[in-house]
Amino acid sequence: MKKMFLGALALMFLTVISCKEATDKAKDAAENVEEATEDAANKVEEAAEEVSETIEDAVDGVPNFSDETVQAYVEKYEAYMAEYKKAAESKDMTAFAALGQKAQDLSAGAQEVAGKLTGEDAEKWTAYMTASAEKMQKYAQEMTQQ
C-alpha cells in the first residue's frame, strides 16, 4: 500500500511538472507570436507612413524633379489644374470646354516626359499624378452638383 501511495504521489508530481513545462512553453509561444505581430505591425506602419509622406508631398505642392523638362511639364500641369478648378467652381462650361486642347497637349507631353523619369522621380511622378487626378475628379464632381 505504501508503494502504491508513493507511486501515485510520484505520478502526480510528474504530472504537475509536465503541466508546468507545457504552460511555460505555451507562454513562450504566446510571447513569440506577440513579438512577431508587433514587428509586422511596425513594418506596416512604417510603409504606410512612407506612402503618406510621398502623397503629402504631391498634394501639398509641386514636387521637385531632377530633370528640367519634367519640372517644366509639372508647372504647366499645375497652371492647367488651376484653370480647371476655376472653371469647375464657377461652373463655366465655356471655359471648361476651352481646356480640352490644353488637356490634349499635356497628355502628349506626359508621354514625352515619362521617358525622362529616374527611379526616385518616377515615384514622385506617380504620387503627384495620382493626387492631381483625385483633385480634378473632385472639381468635376463639384461642378456637376446643384
Score class of each variant (00 low, 15 high):
residue 40 A to W: 00
residue 43 K to S: 14
residue 12 M to T: 15
residue 97 A to E: 12
residue 126 T to H: 04
residue 15 T to Y: 03
residue 75 E to D: 14
residue 141 Q to R: 12
residue 16 V to L: 13
residue 2 K to H: 12
residue 125 W to I: 02
residue 49 E to R: 01
residue 143 M to A: 10
residue 28 D to G: 09
residue 12 M to Y: 06
residue 107 S to V: 02
residue 132 S to H: 09
residue 25 K to W: 05
residue 101 Q to T: 14
residue 140 A to S: 11
residue 24 D to H: 10
residue 11 L to D: 07
residue 119 G to C: 00
residue 73 Y to S: 09
residue 97 A to C: 01
residue 46 E to P: 00
residue 42 N to Y: 00
residue 45 E to I: 10
residue 118 T to F: 00
residue 119 G to L: 07
residue 12 M to Q: 12
residue 13 F to K: 05
residue 138 K to F: 03
residue 119 G to N: 11
residue 73 Y to F: 15
residue 22 A to Y: 08
residue 2 K to T: 14
residue 132 S to T: 07
residue 127 A to K: 02
residue 134 E to W: 02
residue 12 M to L: 15
residue 10 A to P: 10
residue 115 G to T: 11
residue 142 E to I: 08
residue 37 T to R: 13
residue 125 W to C: 02
residue 106 L to F: 03
residue 39 D to L: 06
residue 64 N to E: 14
residue 63 P to C: 04
residue 79 A to D: 08
residue 16 V to R: 10
residue 131 A to G: 12
residue 89 E to L: 12
residue 134 E to F: 07
residue 71 Q to T: 06
residue 29 A to M: 06
residue 58 A to I: 07
residue 51 V to Y: 07
residue 138 K to I: 02
residue 51 V to A: 12
residue 126 T to W: 00
residue 28 D to W: 00
residue 4 M to S: 12
residue 139 Y to S: 05
residue 44 V to G: 03
residue 5 F to R: 15
residue 88 A to P: 07
